[in-house]
């Protein structure tokens, strides 16, 4: 057994100490692009602390600083906790279902015996990713509407019609499952790629040892995608309170507002009123980022306890 200090082998520690400055050149282009297109515009964050109207200079003597007012407006809003709850739960359940599924599907596809069939299935699984949001939600209305296919089937089977869009309980499952449906195949791709790194000889050896296919999945395949899974897991946790507004807005009815109003739809609506709320929406965005970062750092430090595959 190799000796380990703080999760690293001696070899790794030696490597860490021997710096290779050439490697910086590999990273330079990415560094420069990110600097120009992400760091240069970052002064826009200051808008969160201003009474900003487009056309104002973000840093000048005329800038109107309002301190934490924009944040206070959000925190004091009577919807605040509802928004946090709705956003978090939507992301959380989405994560619980949406994260493991691609991993499982990739493992299953990888262990299928008919390789050609497996390829065909993969290709079909990834197609839903290309359906635009508008059509996706349009289909949900067609399938789950009061007189949609699902309700017609329910009635034919002797049940009664259920208004999926008028009951707030139905919102989250519908949102999440349709999202999972669209993207599980797409998200499985990265795992399939990682699985191709498995050396077939490992499998041969295991077979000779009499290991069943299922055992080999756990003993060989799963560890092979561990790094990718771990990084994706951390990143997903770091996105736990972000949800785009477009799909939610399309699926929103006044009846399901209680569950479907999330942070970004709320900010979007405030912006729509025409009251010019750049300061407010930037502040909310910043708040969101801070929470996400806290989650990310927590997840990353937890991951460090188990694996060397962490973000930083």
């Amino acid at each position: 057994m190799e000796q380990r200090i703080a999760g690293l082998t001696l070899k790794e520690i030696r490597k860490k100490e021997k710096k290779n400055y050439w490697l910086l050149l590999f990273i330079l282009p990415a560094f420069v692009f990110v600097f120009i297109f992400c760091y240069v515009p970052m002064y826009g964050i200051l808008i969160a602390f201003q009474d900003f109207v487009p056309g104002d200079e973000i840093l000048s003597q005329y800038t109107i600083w309002v301190g934490w007012d924009n944040f206070a407006m959000f925190f004091k809003d009577y919807m605040f906790w509802t928004l946090i709850e709705n956003t978090f739960l939507l992301c959380f359940f989405g994560f619980i279902i949406g994260f493991p599924l691609p991993v499982i599907v990739a493992l299953m596809l990888n262990s299928m015996r008919h390789k050609r069939l497996s390829k065909t299935i993969q290709t079909i699984y990834y197609i839903p990713h290309f359906i635009s949001l508008v059509v996706m939600v349009g289909m949900l209305y067609l399938f789950f509407g009061q007189y949609g296919l699902v309700n017609n089937a329910l009635e034919a089977l002797g049940g009664s019609r259920y208004s999926f869009f008028l009951h707030e309980e139905a919102f989250r499952p519908m949102y999440i499952l349709s999202g999972v449906w669209q993207d599980f195949g797409w998200n499985a791709i990265i795992y399939l790629a990682a699985l191709s790194g498995v050396d077939p000889e490992q499998h041969e050896a295991a077979i000779i040892d009499g290991a069943s296919r299922l055992r080999r999945v756990f003993a060989i395949d799963l560890p092979a995608i561990g790094g990718t899974t771990s990084i994706l897991l951390i990143l997903s946790i770091g996105n736990m309170i972000s949800v785009g507004y477009e799909k939610v807005l399309l699926m929103q009815t006044d009846a399901n507002l209680g569950k479907s109003e999330v942070i970004m739809t709320y900010v979007y609506k405030k912006g729509l009123t025409g009251y010019v709320m750049q300061g407010f929406s930037t502040a909310v965005g910043l708040f969101n980022s801070v929470v996400n970062v806290i989650l990310l750092i927590t997840a990353n430090s937890l991951a460090k306890l188990f694996s060397k595959n962490t973000l930083f």
Binding site: M73, Y78, S163, H167, D254, L257, K269, T273
Partner: peptide, 25 residues
Amino acid sequence: EINILAQYEVNVDNYLMQNYMQWLI
């Protein structure tokens, strides 16, 4: 007035429509 409206109008609207719809259902 804009500041006040920005703060309350969306809430009033949401609350009204949400309840109204629930009653009808």
